[in-house]
Design a binder for these strands. Structure first.
Length: 644
RNA sequence: GGGCCCGUAGCCUAGUCAGGAUAAGGCGCCGGCCUUCGGAGCCGGAGAUCCCGGGUUCAAAUCCCGGCGGGCCCGCCA
C-alpha cells in the first residue's frame, strides 16, 4: 500500500471539496476557495460571493448549505462564517499524519513532486562572448540557468545544458588582431586566462579608437562643437588607456607599436573575421580558437566555482561551417517569405506576424512589430541572427529536445522573436513553438559604468572573492572553526541566491553589502537554519515510530500548527515554481519555512521534550523542515552544509 | 517617433497572469528579553495616497484606457 502523498495540503483540500460538492450538490469547480490572508482565518476559505456567481445560488443559501454539510466531513475540524467567507480548519491529526507519513515514505524527497510527463529540455545559458571575464550580468544568467536546470532535473525531466560560444564577429576579430600582434602570448603567471584576454581585447579596442578619434579630430577643426565633443571623448579614452597600460606596460606599448604599423586597421579586422568565417586561412583559424579557448578556460574556472555545469559547448563557428547555415539560406530562398530588405536578401514577416493565432503560439509580445530578418551581408558573409536560427534547429536535433530554453537578457527580446518567426516561416513550426526565451533584466552596479571594451569592469570573480572573504570574516567573528571550504561555499551560495531570488523581469541593483548580509533573505540564513535542523536530528539516536506520535497534542501549539500547514503546502508551491520556471517563488517559500522554523524551535525544545508522543511529533517536524530546506536549496543550486 | 520591462513604508522584495478579508516578509529605526537542543536569536512598536488620473465591478495593488518616472530595444553588430 502506498501511504505517501506528494502534496498533503492539496490532497486534503481536494478531498474536502469533493465531499462538500457531493453533499451540497454543487460542482466542485463552482466552489471557489482561497488561501486565507492570515492564520486566524482558517486553513482554507470558501469565498461565498465568488461561489455564488459561479454556482447561481445566492450567498445566504450557499452559507446554509455549506454550514449544514461541513460538519459531516471528517477532515474538517471547525468552520466559521466571517463576512463573505466560510473559514474552515483542517482536522489536525489527519493533516499531520498524512504529512509525516509522506515524509517518512518519500525517504528524503519530500517537497519534490515528480512530473507526470518527463520531457527533454535543453537549457542554454551564460553563452557570454569569450573576450573578457564574466561580469555580474553573466552571473545573473548563470544563477538562473543553474536553478532552472536543477529544478527541472530534480522533478524528473531530462535536461541537457549548453554553452553557445560566440566566437565570430568583429569583437573577437579585434581581440585576435591584438593577440596575434603580440605573438599570442600565454597569460603571465598568476593571471587568469580570461582576464588576460580581456586585457588584450580592451587594449586593442581602446588604442584603435584613440587612433580613429585623432583622425576625426583633424577633420573636425572647422566645427567647434564637434571638435569639443571629440576632445572630451578622447580625454576619457586616454584615461582608460592609461589605466590599461598600468596593468602590463610592456605588452601595452608593444601593442601600440605593432598597431601603428598597420595602415588600415578596419580592413585587417574584416580580413581576419572573414578568413575565420570562411575557414580560408588555417593559421587565422588556429589563432581564433587559441584565443577563445584560453578565455573559456577562465570561464570554466569561474563557472565550476558557481556549480554551473555544461553538457555541451557549441562553437558558433562550427555551426557556420557545418553546412546547416547554407541549408537554412537555401530554405529561405525557396520560401514564400523570401524578399529583399534594404537591398539585402531577407525573410519578410509582414503578413505572418499579423496573424493573432501565430503571435499567440509563438508568444510574440502584443504590439511588437518584427522587422524582416536579413539573412546575409552583401559580401555574402552570414549574420548572427541567421546562425542563431541554425543553432536553434541544431539544439532541437542534437538533443532530441521537446523544449529549448534560452536564458538570454531582455535586451534581446526582438532578435529572439525574430528567430521564432523565422523558424516558423521556414517550416520549423514545432521548434518555433517550443523555443523559449527566458528573459531577464540587467544587473546594475551602483555608481559604476561597466564597459568591456574599455576594460572598465568588475568581474564575477571579484564579486565571488569578496563574498567569500566576507563569509570568512563572519565565520571568524562567530567563532566558527569550520574550514576555508565552508567560507567558499557560503560566499558563492550567497551570490547565487541574491541573483536568482528576485523576479527576472525586474532590474537588479547588485549591492555587495546586501548579498553579503548574512542575516535574513539570504543563502547563509537558509544554510544556517538547515544546519541547525541537521544538528538536532544528529543528536537523536532513535527513529521515532509514526504510531507513537501524539498528533492531537502536537497540533495544539499555534506556532507548530502554522509551520505544519506551511510545510504541507510546500510541495505544491515548489511544483508551481517549477512549472512557471520561477526561482523567486522557490526562494520565498524557503525563506518562509526557515523563518517559521526559527521562530518555533527557539522556544519549544525538541530533544528535551519529556512527553514521548509530543517529542516524536517535534522530531518529525524537524525532519520535515530538514528535507524541505535540503531539497529546496539543491533546486536553487546550493549544496547544503551540515556544519557551518 | 514606435515597442518591451519595471514602479508596493526610508531601503530591498513577495503578491499582479487566474480581482475578494485589516496589503505580506526582510533591512534599517524605536523599545524590551537574556531560558545558547547551533544567539547568525526572541518579543513588541512606529512606518504604505500599492506612481498619478479615469473606467469596469458588489469588490481593484491585481483587469481596461490615458498619463508620469526609470531601464532597455528598434544595425548588412553580437
Amino acid at each position: 500500500m502506498t501511504s505517501y502523498i506528494y502534496e498533503p495540503f492539496e490532497f486534503l483540500k481536494e478531498k474536502i471539496l469533493r465531499e462538500l460538492s457531493v453533499y451540497s450538490n454543487i460542482d466542485r469547480d463552482k466552489i471557489y476557495v482561497e488561501d486565507p490572508s492570515k492564520p486566524d482565518f482558517g486553513d482554507l476559505a470558501i469565498n461565498l460571493h465568488r461561489t455564488s456567481r459561479l454556482s447561481g445560488y445566492d450567498v445566504d443559501s450557499l452559507n446554509d448549505i455549506f454550514i449544514k454539510n461541513l460538519s459531516r466531513i471528517v477532515f474538517v475540524s471547525d468552520f466559521k462564517r466571517i463576512g463573505g467567507y466560510i473559514d474552515l480548519w483542517f482536522s489536525d491529526s489527519h493533516l499531520a499524519s498524512i504529512l509525516f507519513t509522506s515524509v517518512r515514505e518519500l525517504e528524503g524527497s519530500y517537497g519534490l513532486v515528480p512530473v507526470d510527463k518527463p520531457m527533454r529540455y535543453v537549457v542554454e545559458y551564460v553563452s557570454a562572448n569569450p573576450i573578457h571575464p564574466l561580469h555580474i550580468g553573466s552571473g545573473r544568467n548563470a544563477a538562473l540557468g543553474i536553478v532552472i536546470s536543477s529544478m527541472l532535473k530534480m522533478t524528473g525531466h531530462h535536461v541537457e545544458t549548453r554553452f553557445y560560444i560566440n566566437d565570430m564577429g568583429r569583437q573577437i576579430a579585434i581581440a585576435v588582431l591584438g593577440f596575434r600582434l603580440l605573438g599570442e602570448p600565454s597569460p603571465p603567471p598568476g593571471v587568469k586566462p580570461d582576464e588576460w584576454i580581456g586585457f588584450i581585447y580592451a587594449s586593442t579596442h581602446t588604442i584603435i579608437d584613440i587612433r580613429r578619434l585623432k583622425e576625426e579630430l583633424d577633420k573636425a577643426k572647422i566645427d567647434p562643437t564637434r571638435y569639443r565633443e571629440i576632445l572630451s571623448e578622447l580625454d576619457e579614452l586616454v584615461a582608460d588607456a592609461a589605466r590599461l597600460r598600468e596593468k602590463f606596460p610592456q605588452y601595452f606599448d608593444l601593442l601600440i607599436d605593432k598597431l601603428s604599423e598597420i595602415s588600415d586597421v578596419e580592413a585587417e579586422i574584416s580580413r581576419l573575421s572573414q578568413a575565420y568565417e570562411r575557414k580560408t586561412d588555417p593559421d587565422v583559424v588556429r589563432s581564433f580558437r587559441r584565443l577563445v579557448d584560453l578565455c573559456l578556460q577562465g570561464f570554466r574556472e569561474t563557472l565550476d566555482r558557481l556549480g554551473a555545469r555544461f553538457d555541451k559547448w557549441d562553437y558558433e563557428s562550427d555551426i557556420a561551417w557545418s553546412g546547416l547555415v547554407d541549408e537554412i539560406i537555401e530554405l529561405a530562398r525557396r520560401s514564400s517569405y523570401y524578399g529583399t530588405h534594404k537591398n539585402a536578401p531577407a525573410i519578410i514577416f509582414k503578413d505572418l506576424q499579423k496573424n493573432p493565432e501565430i503571435r499567440e503560439r509563438l508568444r510574440l509580445p502584443k504590439s511588437l512589430e518584427i522587422p524582416p530578418l536579413i539573412i546575409m551581408r552583401s559580401d555574402e558573409t552570414t549574420l548572427y541572427a541567421l546562425r542563431d536560427v541554425a543553432y536553434s534547429i541544431y539544439k532541437f536535433r542534437d538533443s532530441k529536445a521537446d523544449y529549448v530554453i534560452n536564458i538570454i537578457a531582455a535586451e534581446q527580446t526582438l532578435p529572439q522573436a525574430q528567430i521564432r518567426l523565422a523558424l516558423y516561416s521556414l517550416g520549423f513550426v514545432r521548434e518555433a513553438e517550443r523555443l523559449i526565451h527566458y528573459s531577464y533584466e540587467m544587473v546594475l552596479l551602483p555608481g559604476y559604468k561597466m564597459s568591456g571594451r574599455r576594460g572598465r569592469f568588475i568581474s564575477l570573480d571579484q564579486v565571488l572573492n569578496e563574498a567569500v572573504s566576507r563569509a570568512r570574516e563572519i565565520l571568524k567573528e562567530r567563532g566558527s572553526r569550520s574550514s576555508e571550504d565552508v567560507a567558499e561555499k557560503i560566499g558563492v551560495a550567497a551570490v547565487i541566491f541574491s541573483l536568482a531570488s528576485i523576479s527576472p523581469s525586474k532590474q537588479l541593483v547588485f549591492r555587495l553589502e546586501d548579498a553579503l548580509d548574512f542575516e535574513k533573505n539570504s543563502a547563509p540564513y537558509l544554510l544556517y537554519s538547515r544546519a541547525r535542523a541537521h544538528s538536532i536530528l544528529e543528536k537523536i539516536s532513535e527513529e521515532p515510530a509514526l504510531e507513537e506520535i501524539d498528533y492531537e497534542n502536537g497540533m495544539k501549539d499555534p506556532l507548530r500548527r502554522q509551520l505544519i500547514i506551511e510545510m504541507a503546502k510546500t510541495p505544491s508551491i515548489f511544483r508551481k515554481a517549477v512549472e512557471e520556471l520561477s526561482p523567486e517563488t522557490l526562494a520565498s517559500q524557503l525563506l518562509k519555512i526557515a523563518d517559521l522554523f526559527n521562530t518555533w524551535y527557539q522556544k519549544d525544545p525538541v530533544i528535551h521534550e519529556k512527553d514521548p508522543g509530543l517529542r516524536n511529533f517535534k522530531i518529525y517536524m524537524v525532519k520535515t523542515v530538514h528535507q524541505i530546506l535540503t531539497n529546496g536549496l539543491k533546486m536553487m543550486g546550493i549544496q547544503p552544509l551540515d556544519k557551518i
